[in-house]
């Protein structure tokens, strides 16, 4: 248990730093803004209490907001995916349910499961974030395009980081 908490705290800081120091500086035009830090919300353990999910989402979002100067936008998006995460997990649960000690990663539940689960959370997060940022519906389609393209890039990075992370785990 302590091990899990410790690992998650380290993951929090690593992902935030990677996001604000590396990914924030990679600029591939106005339509591609990946937000890899969402991975933290995706791979939190199944046993995380629901209320804690919301608080963690809020803190994570606000931390990112401090660096992006966006005050509350990332927090709103993160709290939103923290809110839908239990329902999405329920929806995708295998017939026999999740076993104790399982984690929502590629390693435990396979590629198709992880892809669909994380894609939904990422798209929802980006959708909320970009629409709050633009704050008007007159640019609906160009914003939607940003959501889709950025989501694809985030998903790509999330999956790649999963493979890097899993490899390390097998050696342990």
């Amino acid at each position: 248990m302590v091990n899990t908490i410790g690992r998650n705290i380290i993951r929090f800081f690593v992902l935030v730093l990677v996001q604000v120091l590396v990914i924030k500086n990679i600029e591939l035009g106005r339509f591609v803004n990946p937000f890899v830090y969402v991975l933290f919300m995706i791979v939190l353990p199944f046993e995380t209490p629901k209320w804690m999910l919301l608080i963690i989402g809020f803190v994570l979002g606000l931390t990112i907001d401090m660096f992006y100067d966006t005050m509350g936008m990332h927090a709103a998006a993160c709290v939103f995916i923290a809110f839908v995460r239990p329902s999405v997990l329920n929806w995708f649960s295998p017939r026999e349910g999740y076993e104790f000690g399982m984690q929502p990663t590629i390693q435990y539940l396979g590629v198709p499961w992880f892809l669909s689960y994380s894609a939904i959370l990422i798209v929802l997060h980006h959708f909320v974030l970009f629409f709050i940022e633009v704050f008007r519906f007159s640019e609906f389609f160009s914003t939607l395009l940003r959501v889709i393209i950025s989501s694809i890039f985030t998903l790509l990075l999330v999956v790649v980081s999963q493979y890097l992370f899993n490899k390390k785990k097998e050696e342990e």
């Binding site: 919301l54 608080i55 809020f58 005050m71 509350g72 927090a75 709103a76 709290v79 809110f83």
Partner: peptide, 16 residues
């Protein structure tokens, strides 16, 4: 759960 969610979102909207 829902009330905490609404509370936090309201806080975010206030900040924004």
């Amino acid at each position: 759960f829902i009330f905490l969610f609404l509370l936090l979102e309201a806080l975010c909207v206030y900040l924004i």
